[in-house]
Amino acid sequence: MPPFMHSSKQHVPPIAIRPPPHLDFCVGHPGVPASRPRLVGTVEIRSPGKILSISHVTIALHRYESIHPPSAASLSSLKREYSIIVGQEVLVFQAPGGHADVVAMDLPFELPFSTSHLDNPPPSVSLANGMCETSYQLVAVLYPSKGSIIKFGMPVKIERFDLLSTWGMYNQPQTKAVDGSDHLITMEVALPKTCIGPGDPLIAYIKLCPNPDWSKSRKIRISKLQSILEEIITFKLEKGEEITRRRKILKDEFDLYDLKLPAAGFIRDISCVFPSQLRLKRSPSGLKMNLTDCSATPSLVGITTQAALFSVEYTITVKAILLRAKDISVTQAITVCPLDRSACLKAMSDIDDAVRQARISENRPKELPQSHIVTMVTNTPGKRILVE
């Protein structure tokens, strides 16, 4: 959603929202409460050559979401938009007595993020040719003592640092076993790592065991092993209805040339590399790797996210193509991080520094920089002077 704009016909003073010098608006790391994530900056109001009578000024973080499901090409009614204030609107100026005649104002602000993991805002994303988007704006609102309110919006990017693939919680092995529909074979797949980013290897350990109670299981042969990485976008429509869009990000095949399944079982690990950019290429093993086109921004191959109007999830499916038995597959959920490993390691170092700084300042009084306000006051009858 575009920022609030002002018409030149209104002759209103310009309003700006600026971050601290040489810094971003976002301080700390959203998704990591120990780093005390927050948005800081200054609301600037300038009225050169004109006096502005102001009642109060507020600022808030607004979240905007939009979806346009692929099946809605001719059904615009399926397109939905959603907006909400994240946290609370903060009063940065209140005129004593109800109004103040102002020429210029610099009003510092701080908007903290929730310390609850469930209340953390989803990251800024734009996926699938704009089919689903989440964006944010800092919105300052100036309330004059008379006349219409004045709004100004500044886009900000919100990231989620609890999605980094280098967190230890993603190094817990995840195992799932499935019995074949014909009861002739059992397949077990273990993922040593459950979060990946661009360029990361995706490894799966596979175990195929024949059912010893069935003589037919002795004749089973393994033709191929497949690994399929799939993106699942769920669009949430009105009245609880949903539309799901599935897209294959990666497909890799391993030919076993009709290998006979041993009585003791078959064990094999397979790996493929999550694409750093989506184009046709070959895996390190020399096997053909089919990659679909990515419609996200060039730096965003994929990301796991949950928003009000949509969700983006990823699954890895390992499938065994068999002879003399029905094919069998195991599907498991994984988390996709938009950053590669080197960027994740750099972010982890920055998080450590931010957490240390947050602990040092934890017991200190939290004070914002002083506001600077230039007003007009009457000194002698018929004469006004500037006062800061």
Rank of each mutant, 00 (worst) to 15 (best):
R221G: 11
S223W: 01
K224R: 02
L225D: 11
I228W: 04
L229D: 15
E230Y: 09
E231T: 13
I233T: 15
I233V: 12
T234S: 01
F235D: 05
L237T: 06
G240A: 03
G240C: 08
E241P: 11
E242I: 11
E242Y: 10
I243Q: 15
I243W: 09
I243A: 10
I249Y: 04
L250W: 00
L250F: 01
K251L: 08
E253M: 09
E253C: 07
D255N: 13
D255Y: 12
L256N: 07
L256Q: 03
L256V: 10
Y257Q: 13
Y257K: 12
D258Y: 01
L261E: 06
L261V: 08
P262D: 09
A264I: 05
G265T: 15
F266Y: 09
F266S: 00
F266G: 05
V273S: 00
S276Y: 13
Q277T: 14
L278Y: 09
R279K: 04
R282V: 14
R282W: 00
S283G: 03
S283D: 12
P284N: 00
P284H: 05
S285R: 07
G286C: 08
K288D: 10
K288E: 15
M289I: 10
N290T: 08
D293G: 08
S295Q: 06
S299M: 07
L300T: 11
V301K: 04
G302V: 13
T305N: 03
T305A: 04
Q306N: 13
Q306R: 14
A308F: 06
L309Y: 08
E313G: 03
T315M: 00
I316A: 04
T317R: 08
T317Y: 02
K319Q: 14
K319I: 11
A320I: 08
L322H: 12
L323D: 09
A325E: 00
A325Y: 06
D327T: 07
D327H: 02
I328G: 05
S329K: 12
S329V: 10
V330T: 13
V330I: 09
Q332W: 14
Q332A: 11
Q332H: 15
A333T: 14
A333C: 05
V336M: 02
